[in-house]
Design a protein around this nucleic acid. Structure first.
Length: 581
RNA sequence: GCGCCCGUAGCUCAGCUGGAUAGAGCACGAGACUUCUAAUCUUGAGGCCACAGGUUCGAAUCCUGUCGGGCGCACCA
C-alpha cells in the first residue's frame, strides 16, 4: 500500500486480494467474475465501517452457501492489523470494523493529495468523447439547452477525474436549411443597417434582435455590395459570417456557465470532406443501406405524404421500428445521414462515445445507436455508445410558469438566467436532480439564500471552515497534524464520510451520473454543520479551544480536509467553493 | 395507435446498477443563539415505494401487463 493510496482503494484491493487467494486455493473456481462484488459502508453504521457482499455474490459460483464462503473470507481478513473485527451478518454480509488508525491516516492522505483526492485511474486513460450542447447556430443559448450543457460538462469533468481522457465536443449544424434561413435573416438586418426600412420581419425568418449587430458588421465589412445582388452571390458568404457570429455568441454564453469545449465539429466541413458518402458506400457494401420506400406514418398521415424511393438504413435490424432515410428526395443528406457519418468520425479518435440530448430527441436515439452499432461492429471494434437524455425543465417564477414565445424571439436565454441567479446556482440546481426526471426551476426559490437551496448550504459549510481557520489564525493557532490521535468519535465520523468521496466519484463515473456528487456533498455539508453545532451544547466540542492548542490544531487540520473534499467535489460540478458568504 | 422517460412522506426529491429496519429538505409539532457565521443544529409525527402478477436466498430497484403524467412519432433539426 503506497503512502497516498486512499482508504477506499486500499480496502477494495484487500478484498480483491483475498478472493484472488481463494481462487488460487480452488475454493473459488478459476476466472470467477468479481464484477458484482462491492465494498461499501453499510447504511446502518452499527454494522461497521465497511461491508462486502462478496460471499453472497460468489457463493453460487463456488457451489457453496454464502455463510460458509464468508467464513473462509473472514479467516483471511481477521489477522489484518488494520481491521479490528470482521463479522458475518444477515444472509452473508461481511462487516468490517476498521481500526481508528485508518481514519487518522486518511486525514493525512487527503492533505497529501489535495485536489487529487478522489481522482481515480479506473478509466485507464480510455478516451471518451462527450458531445453536448450542440445547439443550432441560429441564435443565443436559451433555457432548453441549459440542463444538457451543465450535465454534459459535469459528466465530462467527472469522467476525466475518474481517469479517462475526455474530448468535450460540440457538433455545429451549419449545413442545413436552418442556417440558410439564418443567412437570409442576416441579409435583412444587413439591409436594415444600411438604412433601409425592412418593416416587420416576415414569417420564416429569425426575428430576434441579436441579428442586428450581425447585419451591422456585414454592412461595415461589405458596404452595399450585396444589397441588390442575387441570393446566389451572398448566401454562402452570409451563412459563413453569421454562423461564425452565432458561434461566438454561443461560446460566450457557455463561458458564463463555465463551459468550454475542446472540439467544435462542423457539419459543413464533414460534408465537404465527403464523409457521408464514404459511410453510405460502406453501408451499401454491407447491405445496411438499400433504396426503398417508407411506409406512411401510422396514427396521423400528413396530407402531403407520398411514397418516394430513398436510400434507407436498415435500423430495424438493430431494434428500430422503421428503416430510416439518410438522404432526402432533393439529394441532400438528412440530419440522420450526416449524423451517422459524424459519429463515425468521432469514433476514429475515441474508445467510447456519449451524446447528451434533450428529451425531445428521444425518438431518434434508436436509429443513431443502430448506426453506431452497425458501423463499429462491422469494422470489428464495437464502440460503446451511450445517449443520455436530459428531460425538460419547466421555468417558474413564484410557482407560475414563465411564458416564452419562440416565434417572437422572446425567450429566456442562458445569459438572462446566469445574470439573474448566478452560475453556481444554475449549475448546482441542474445537478441536484437525476437528469432523466423532469424538473422545475423556480427563479424565486433558487435565489433564496438557504431554504430550498442546497448550493448555499454546501458553500456555507466550506465558508465556515475557512472562517474558523481565520478566527484561529487571529489567535495564532494554525492547523497541524502532529497530534491527530487527540481527535474523538465525532471527528472520526466526519472523516469517515469524507473518506467515501473516492468511492462516490468512481460510482458516479461508472453510472455516468454526476448528480450523485451533488447529493454526496450535501450530506457531507450536513454532517459538518451537525458537528459544528455540537459546540453549542458543549463548548468543549468547539473547534477552537484557546487553552488546548494541540487539540485545536488537530481539529483545524481535520476541518481543512473536509473543506478540501468539498472543494474537490464542487470543482467537479463547476461550482465555486467560497471562503465566505 | 406506437416509442422513450417518469410515478417513493402533504410538497420537492435521493435511494450507491438486486442487499440488512426505505432516507433527506420544505411544510407541521417540540427545543437550542452573551456563538468558531442560528444562512445552522437537535427531536417528533408522517410510507401498501401508482396498481397487479412474475424472476430468487432477497425487489423501490430486474421482467410482463394495467393506470396516471411528460416528451416525441416527416425526407424537420
Amino acid at each position: 500500500m503506497s503512502e497516498t493510496q486512499t482508504l477506499h482503494a486500499a480496502f477494495a484491493a484487500k478484498i480483491d486480494a483475498v478472493l484472488e487467494a481463494l481462487e488460487a486455493e480452488a475454493v473459488l473456481p478459476a476466472g470467477v467474475s468479481r464484477s458484482n462484488v462491492t465494498v461499501e459502508p453499510p447504511r446502518d453504521p452499527s454494522h461497521g465501517d465497511l461491508a462486502t457482499n462478496a460471499a453472497m455474490v460468489l457463493a453460487k459460483q463456488a457451489k457453496t452457501n454464502p455463510r460458509a464462503l464468508a467464513e473462509k473470507i473472514v479467516e483471511k481478513l481477521s489477522d489484518d492489523p488494520l481491521i479490528d473485527a470482521a463479522e458475518i451478518a444477515g444472509p452473508g454480509f461481511i462487516n468490517l470494523r476498521l481500526a481508528n488508525a485508518n481514519w487518522l491516516r486518511e486525514i493525512g492522505t487527503i492533505a497529501a493529495l489535495k485536489g487529487d483526492y478522489g481522482r481515480s485511474v479506473r478509466g485507464a486513460g480510455r478516451t471518451v468523447n462527450v458531445e453536448y450542447v450542440s445547439a443550432n447556430p441560429t441564435g443565443p443559448m436559451h433555457m432548453g439547452h441549459c440542463r444538457g450543457a451543465v450535465v454534459g460538462d459535469a459528466l465530462a469533468a467527472l469522467l476525466e477525474y475518474a481517469g479517462h481522457t475526455v474530448i468535450r465536443e460540440y457538433y455545429v449544424n451549419d449545413a442545413g436549411a436552418q442556417v440558410q434561413t439564418l443567412a437570409r435573416s442576416a441579409h435583412l438586418r444587413y439591409r436594415e443597417a444600411l438604412g433601409e426600412d425592412i418593416g416587420e420581419i416576415p414569417e420564416g425568418f429569425y426575428p430576434g434582435d441579436y441579428l442586428k449587430p450581425v447585419g451591422q458588421k456585414l454592412a461595415d465589412e461589405f458596404g452595399d455590395a450585396y444589397v441588390a445582388a442575387p441570393e446566389s452571390e451572398w448566401l454562402g458568404l452570409f451563412r459563413e459570417k453569421s454562423v461564425a457570429a452565432m458561434m461566438d455568441m454561443i461560446r460566450a454564453d457557455l463561458a458564463m456557465l463555465g463551459i468550454h469545449h475542446n472540439v467544435f465539429a462542423s457539419e459543413a466541413e464533414l460534408q465537404a470532406a465527403g464523409k457521408p458518402e464514404a459511410a453510405e458506400k460502406w453501408l451499401r457494401a454491407h447491405d445496411l443501406v438499400y433504396d426503398g420506400v417508407l411506409e406512411a406514418p401510422k396514427g396521423k398521415t400528413p396530407e402531403d405524404w407520398e411514397p418516394v424511393e430513398l436510400p434507407l438504413f436498415r435500423s430495424t435490424r438493430f431494434g428500430d421500428d422503421q428503416d430510416r432515410p439518410i438522404k432526402k428526395s432533393d439529394g441532400n443528406w438528412t440530419y440522420f445521414g450526416a449524423d451517422l457519418a459524424y459519429h463515425m468520425q468521432k469514433a476514429e479518435k475515441a474508445d467510447e462515445l456519449i451524446d447528451i440530448w434533450g428529451a425531445d430527441h428521444a425518438g431518434t436515439v434508436k436509429r443513431i445507436k443502430a448506426a453506431v452499432a452497425a458501423l463499429s461492429e462491422g469494422e470489428g471494434k464495437p464502440i460503446p455508445f451511450d445517449v443520455k437524455l436530459v428531460q425538460m425543465v419547466q421555468l417558474l417564477r413564484g410557482g407560475e410558469p414563465v411564458k416564452m414565445s419562440k416565434r417572437s424571439g422572446n425567450f429566456i436565454t442562458i445569459a438572462d438566467m446566469v445574470e439573474e441567479v448566478g452560475k453556481d446556482v444554475v449549475r448546482f440546481t441542474m445537478l441536484t436532480r437525476k437528469p432523466e426526471a423532469q424538473m422545475d426551476f423556480d427563479f424565486a426559490k433558487v435565489v433564496e439564500a438557504s431554504k430550498d437551496n442546497p448550493v448555499f448550504y454546501v458553500q456555507y459549510a466550506h465558508a465556515r471552515i475557512a472562517s474558523t481557520r481565520r478566527k484561529a489564525a487571529a489567535e495564532n493557532i494554525h492547523p497541524a497534524d502532529d497530534s491527530l490521535d487527540l481527535l474523538g468519535e465525532a471527528e472520526l465520523a466526519l472523516v469517515k464520510l469524507a473518506a467515501q468521496f473516492p468511492r462516490q466519484v468512481e460510482a458516479a463515473a461508472q453510472a455516468r451520473e454526476p448528480h450523485r456528487i451533488a447529493f454526496y456533498l450535501y450530506d457531507l455539508a450536513a454532517a459538518f454543520h451537525a458537528f459544528w453545532n455540537l459546540g453549542n451544547d458543549d463548548p468543549s466540542k468547539r473547534i477552537i479551544l484557546s487553552d488546548k492548542v494541540n487539540l485545536t490544531q488537530s481539529r483545524l487540520f481535520m476541518a481543512d480536509q473536509i473543506g478540501q473534499v468539498i472543494r474537490n467535489g464542487l470543482a467537479l460540478l463547476g461550482v465555486e467553493a467560497v471562503e465566505e458568504l
